[in-house]
Structures are given as structure tokens and as C-alpha cells.
Design a protein around this nucleic acid. Sequence first.
DNA 1: CCAAAAGTGTTAGTGATACACCCATGT
DNA 2: ACATGGGTGTATCACTAACACTTTTGG
Lengths: 224, 224
Amino acid sequence: MKEENIHNFGKPSLTVDIVIFTIREDELKVLFVKRDINPFREKWALPGGFVRMDESLEDAAKRELKEETGVQNVYLEQLFSFGDIKRDPRGRVITVAYMALTNSENIKLKATTDVSDVKWFSVKKIPTLAFDHKKILDYSLKRLKWKFEYTTVAFSLLPQKFTISQIQKIYEIVFNKRFDKRNFAKKIISLNILREEELKKNVSHRPPMLYSLKNNIGEIVEII
Amino acid sequence: MKEENIHNFGKPSLTVDIVIFTIREDELKVLFVKRDINPFREKWALPGGFVRMDESLEDAAKRELKEETGVQNVYLEQLFSFGDIKRDPRGRVITVAYMALTNSENIKLKATTDVSDVKWFSVKKIPTLAFDHKKILDYSLKRLKWKFEYTTVAFSLLPQKFTISQIQKIYEIVFNKRFDKRNFAKKIISLNILREEELKKNVSHRPPMLYSLKNNIGEIVEII
DNA sequence: CCAAAAGTGTTAGTGATACACCCATGT
DNA sequence: ACATGGGTGTATCACTAACACTTTTGG
């Protein structure tokens, strides 16, 4: 009987790379690691690495993110697979890119496996990156804006309870434009995706209402 | 100097699979091949196969589509990569799924490499499929609808010159719902993406205007 | 003259935008 | 009392949805 032989062809290698975004100091930031191994030693790169035989792609992304940066428990979605023939000087390597979003307040970065440094960079000041990681970053920025318009992913950048103006600020940072306070609040509330919690305490002005998200993060809801 | 060894890990294998849609007999159809090799010999499956070392992912998708089905020159976009550990009984295989769209009028199917048959199936009557191809199909149907709403991909299902009612029919088939003729025409024309060509000849009713698409297929334009 | 599909306008309703003042708290 | 950000309503405009009749051609 004819049998397809899985070994008839040379095999490309397979990696995952993660573009993780957060908001800090009123800016959209992305996390890079400084490579401590060749190729591109001493260059900044997206966290990532080879996929193991016994883990799914998503598990590989989570593992690499944790190993290289210490970051855990984030919103994660697959973006795109990049497979140009010459994208890696070591040979044929396909990478599956993931986008992650997190509220960075409680995150402690730590450089570990194969990495000498880990750092948040403003998307407005991106260093020279290893491999085709600039292309991956550009792609993920487009996807990020798209997802912000049509889903609730933005809420993964906030703590579990948040005010309307915190959401608005995040949209203003990502779209780099101001929104009218009244219209923004009207729109968000009319979507019926928020649950009122309690009033925020110890603020030196009128205490704002805290909300939490009823729906699942990433759910499709036309926001803007 | 520390050097990252590309061979430190067992390598998963890498395939591409293509979900190709067309409209025939007023139905949305998808192309499957009957496998002539194990595993899943005699089962219907998406066209696809192993990625070679010297071709990009997109080239691999085009090559497999042509080799297995004879189909060429189609709209093609990457969908998603599927990497569950047990998705292939032969071992660890990741597949990069592509979606293709074509106007099937001029297409001659021919079963060749590793394939005993090739056939269009209505999306309403899908046979049992090999591997996780049902999951890939379901994903691509979601993506198809999404792209129809927000881009001009639908036009890749039509000949270069087409009438408004041909477009409308395609939208009605894909969304499985009727649209008002006047509102649909108004909307499409207001998008300013069509160029008037000549009147269609030899029709046994009032001759409709033929249009062509000004923009690139797949361009983002909110259609519905 | 009949059958078939093409083409075309108006109205009502819904959602988007623009815009400014008062409120509750901490210091 | 003052500084700070929170909260709220209305009027206009643009877009969407609902709806029916006349036109052009081939047979």
C-alpha cells in the first residue's frame, strides 16, 4: 500500500514569537529581550523560541514568554505565521507570531534563558530588531487597532475593576487621538458589556464608578 | 561563544492546507480531494501537503493547490496555523491554513499527486473529513463572512466584469439572507469602488450595466 | 404582448457628532 | 475655597431600512 512518508522532505524549523503590549506612562509599550546567543547576539528581539514536540503552539508561546521575561497570565491570540525563506540566517525557520496584552502593574520582568535583558519600549521608539521582528511588530500593531475597534480586547490592559475614563485613555493612546468624554461614555455604556461595581475611594475629586466587564475579553462587539 | 543550536529540539513537521471557495449552482462550495495515501486513505480532505525547504508558505499553498487540484491564479490569504499535538496520527505536524477564493467558471479540476478524486462540495453538505479539517473549514467560514463584510474579497468570486445583481447574489448566498435591491445597489455604488464598463449584450430583458473593480481585491472597505 | 430582470426615490428611524456646565471629594 | 477629574443632555446630521413601480430587451 502506498504510504506517505513524513520524512520525504527536509524539515523547516518552527518557532513562536510573542508581541506583548501594555500601557505604561501613558504610552503603548512593547516588550523586547536582549539576545544573549547568536545569531543577533546583543540585539533586541521579540521573546520567543523553538516549539517543542510535546506542546501546542499556544503552550509554546506561553512557555517562552514566561521563561524569557517572567510574564504570565495574559490575553494571548495567534497573529500570523511568517515563513520567508531567508528570514533566519541559521536556515529555514518558520515562526508563528502571537500577540499578548497585559495590565503591567503587577508584572516583574526577569531576564532568564538565553536573554541578558528585558525591557518595555514605547512603540514610538523602537530599536533595531533581530530577524524580521520589525515586520512582525508592524503587523501586530495593525491587528491591535483592528481588534480594539471591533472587540473588547482593550479591557485586558486594565485591572479587573476600572473607570470609564481609564478605558477612554487606553483608546486615546492606541489610536493617538482624543475622544469626546460624553460620547465615549454613552457608547461604552450602551454596549451593555459593563457591570457597575462600587465607587472608587480615596480620590481627591468626585469619586468615579468602577466597572467590570460582563463579557469575555476579546468578544466581538463593535466599539468605535 | 554561546551558540543557539537549531537542532537541540525534535522538529515538528510543517504542512499547508487550502480551503478554496467558489460559487456554483447558487451555492457556496468548497473543494476537497480524496486521499489516495495513508493516513485517511479514501477520506475527503483539504488540498495541502508538506512545505519544502526552498519555498515560502504562500508558494507552498499555491503549489499544492495546483498539484492536487489543477486550480491556479486565485485570491489567497493565510488564515491560521493549527498545531494541536494530536492533530495528525503520523506524529507532530503543524499546518498553516490558507483560504482561497475563485470564480470557478474556467476551472478544470484534475486529481493528480496522491489524490484519487477532486470535487466541489456545498458547504451545506460536508462529508466526513480527514485530520482536523472540519475545524479548519469552520474557522475559514467565519473568516470568509468577516472578510465579506469589511473588504472587497467577494469580487474574486466573479469574472472581471460583472453586474450589481451578480454581487448581490453572492452576498445573499454567503450570508444566507436576502438584501433589498435598491439599498444594496445604493450602498455598493456609494463606496466608489466600481468602474462602469459597457452594457451587457444578448440578455432577454433590460440589459444591465457591467462594472469592474477599481480597487484591489481584499482591500478594506466596509461593505455591509 | 408577455416574461424577465434592471433600474430608480422618498420617508422614517436610528445612531454619530458636536458641544458646556455642575458635582463630589481631598487638601 | 480651590483644584481635580467625574458625570451628564440636547440638537443636528448622516446613514440605514423599508417600501413599488416603470423600463428595456428577447422571444
